[in-house]
């Protein structure tokens, strides 16, 4: 499949096999194969990768805000091997489930310390 990384891939929504939202394609990583030909190896998602791409003061502030919620710094982005991508349309669909990937540390912290403590947090509104 022929894709244009900047137009079809960057900034698109990542969706797992059940339709759950995982994050955006905040950055990508290339590597060289045995013949020295570059190929798309990994999709990166998370504030660490996004902050670097946004750059400047605003990008640094983004990373600093997110890092308040984690203990091990600097914050590493979630890395998704390109082989997990099933198809690309208005979103990037993965062939794996969200559970098979580590959950965002910010999401986990807020779930544990704030939202999960409010009565009724386990019930879907619909």
């Amino acid at each position: 499949m022929r894709i244009q990384v900047s137009h079809d891939l960057l900034d698109r929504q990542l969706v797992d096999v059940d339709g759950r939202l995982i994050g955006k394609v905040d950055d990508v990583e290339f590597a060289l194969d045995a013949h020295g030909t570059p190929y798309l190896r990994t999709l990166l998602t998370g504030p660490g990768a996004l902050g670097l791409r946004v750059g400047g003061r605003i990008g640094r502030m983004l990373v600093l805000t997110a890092e308040r919620f984690v203990s091990d710094r600097p914050m590493v982005p979630l890395r998704i091997p390109y082989g997990f991508v099933a198809r690309i349309d208005s979103a990037v669909w993965l062939r794996i489930r969200a559970e098979d990937l580590p959950t965002s540390p910010v999401e986990l912290w807020l779930r544990r310390h704030l939202i999960g403590r409010i009565p009724g947090a386990g019930r879907a509104g619909g």
């Binding site: 929504q13 990542l14 939202l21 994050g23 998602t45 999401e107 986990l108 779930r111 704030l114 999960g116």
Partner: peptide
């Protein structure tokens, strides 16, 4: 939608903790 978080009222607030934090 900017950050790609899980959002919406179909899932439980636990599963969309960042979305519900922004709301609150």
């Amino acid at each position: 939608q900017y950050f790609g978080w899980q959002w919406g009222k179909r899932v439980s607030p636990r599963e969309a903790a960042r979305f519900h934090t922004v709301l609150l």
